[in-house]
Design a binder for these strands. Structure first.
Lengths: 341, 341
DNA sequence: CTGAAAGCGCTAACAT
DNA sequence: ATGTTAGCGCTTTCAG
């Protein structure tokens, strides 16, 4: 028993009125229609399981009630969280969501199919690199869009989390456990979340009176983290606590420590960043700064919806602060650590 | 400079012909039109960056060129891989993809918005539990749909991978390294991938002449894996090699072993299943059966496309076989293991 | 080879 | 309070 094709006309015929009346009633415009009629219309619509046809509605109203999101890499847990938040909020606001993965490969075709054919009312751009072809593509579109978790210079339309505070949190956590010789495995300067995390960490170390942290800049990859940590382990004095500022980097760093035979947190403490729900699954379970990615997803669709409704684009930092989730990689520094000077 | 609203009419005006002519030419129907005219039309369309309006086209042709996928949990890496595969193939076939997360919560609304409003030509269902509300919802729809990675009884429209072979592979791997006392941490009987993996494993153990494996049935969660492994570690004889038949279970099992102070693979070997790209990031890096999830995503959209085009639904097992990826958790059994009898 | 015309299902301004 | 009408942009049949 399917509602295969229930149209306004069908309801109108059934009720014995005009389709425009049905449209008015169902559309919710609480306008000039006799309660009795309205009542019948609602009944019939309900019984027939009426659903407005999206194509017809879009064609007529120039609104699709559909949002698009394009991402560089579905496989990255950060994006899962962002999407999840976005999906929730989208549903709440009455949108559905079109998704596209736009890696380095020139899948411009996918882009155009999503953006160029009037399928969506607005676009969320979660592309990794600021310089990707997406900028070029976006430039020749009039569709409302906003960046998420990335802040391309001067575009003034992005939603990010408080990465500064995330870095600060890590520094405070390390300091409060007694660490004086700390280090940071940072990401490349081309990634703006990386520079903000670094900035927050370094500033807080300074404010707290810690020794200026050693910083290793690496790619945000497992092997980047591995190499960065290896270098740190060979430096003197060896840091007693390290902030590994990205999930993959944290994984690589842990592997490096395991390989070298050191014990966590007995010999060295780690504070990471949880880009998803993976930190709890690592060994030892990673003490990490949890960024409000889900909220970021929600906020970005709120923003986009605002812009679609005529609002001005703006930069927003999601209000939910990062929070430190204590698991098992943060402890006091070893006793034989170089004493305070 | 936007192609804000280039319509057929605009092109027709420009070229000086009728819009139906433009439509014919652009639609590709290589039909009865003077080359010179066609040529001009292509030129102008190109220059104006023409893109057909999806809503109008759908309304008229009753095809949206849009597919839907609903999943229970975006956060699970299996689904990331499936989606990625699906997205690729969808693009190749000219579709875009609508995504919805349909957890336990009665987000029926999201379902209806996606399915009931004629937004999609077909639906991919990746729901975790066979008994979820989705069955009820699907029953009263006429839209083409197919299940992925799940085979609900008797529906005859699903795409799965060769889980039997996955289990067999694990058994062979263990056996070939000399393990005789093996065990299995299996999933619940309500999950059909779990029973297939178990079946393949047990059968192969038998065929290989191994002692009948101890099997612990647990939930497919980290703590399920932890508890299952703890029980295994206390059994006598303690198995020297264990197949942990799911990613989360593998994580929990590894944690249990770490906690108990045993070394992998010196004291015990593990073969897991890689549901995504996480196995390589674990410690020690997990030797695992890699299931062709990406391919499954591709195949499922091929299937769906076939059904949409009028084909009969069918059960398909993706041809790409599972493959064993050797990392660091599989070694020979310890020397003091109970000798062969 | 090309144009005219109808209509997909819906909305909204305008009549009545 | 309800009906009429005119499209939204496109495909497609039928005439010319």
């Amino acid at each position: 028993m399917a509602n295969a094709k229930v149209t306004l006309k069908e309801i109108a015929d059934y009720v014995g009125c005009d389709i425009s009346t049905v449209s008015k009633v169902l559309h919710g415009g609480r306008i000039r229609v006799r309660p009795a009629t309205a009542q019948r219309i609602f009944e019939v619509a309900e019984r027939l399981q009426y659903r407005p046809n999206a194509a017809a509605r879009s064609l007529r109203s120039q609104r699709t009630l559909c949002l698009g999101i394009i991402l560089p890499d579905l496989t990255n847990p950060v994006y899962s969280e962002i999407i999840r938040g976005a999906l929730r909020k989208a549903e709440e606001l009455g949108y559905v969501m079109l998704i596209a993965e736009l890696g380095e490969a020139a899948q411009e075709d996918a882009f155009h199919r999503v953006v160029g054919e009037g399928r969506i009312d607005g676009l969320i751009v979660a592309t990794a690199s600021e310089q990707s072809s997406i900028g070029y593509l976006l430039a020749r579109q009039t569709i409302p869009y906003v960046f998420v978790n990335r802040r391309p210079g001067g575009l003034g339309r992005s939603v990010i989390v408080d990465d500064d505070e995330g870095g600060a949190l890590a520094a405070r956590a390390l300091e409060s456990r007694g660490h004086r010789d700390v280090a940071l495995i940072a990401g490349p300067d081309s990634i703006d979340t990386a520079v903000r995390r670094r900035r927050g960490f370094e500033r807080t170390c300074r404010d707290l009176g810690l020794r200026s942290p050693i910083v290793e800049s690496v790619e945000y990859t497992v092997s980047g983290g591995y190499q960065g940590m290896m270098r740190l382990l060979n430096s003197t004095p060896r840091p007693t606590g390290v902030f590994t500022s990205n999930l993959l980097v944290s994984i690589g760093a842990l592997n490096a420590i395991h390989t070298s035979g050191l014990l966590i947190p007995r010999d060295i403490s780690i504070v990471g960043v949880d880009d998803g729900n993976i930190a709890a699954f690592m060994w030892p379970p990673l003490t990490a700064v949890q960024m409000p990615f889900r909220e970021m997803g929600e906020v970005v669709v709120e923003e986009l919806d605002r812009i679609i409704s005529g609002g001005e684009p703006q930069e927003v930092v999601v209000e939910t602060p990062p929070v430190l989730v204590e698991r098992a990689t943060l402890g006091p520094p070893p006793l034989d650590a170089s004493p305070d000077d």
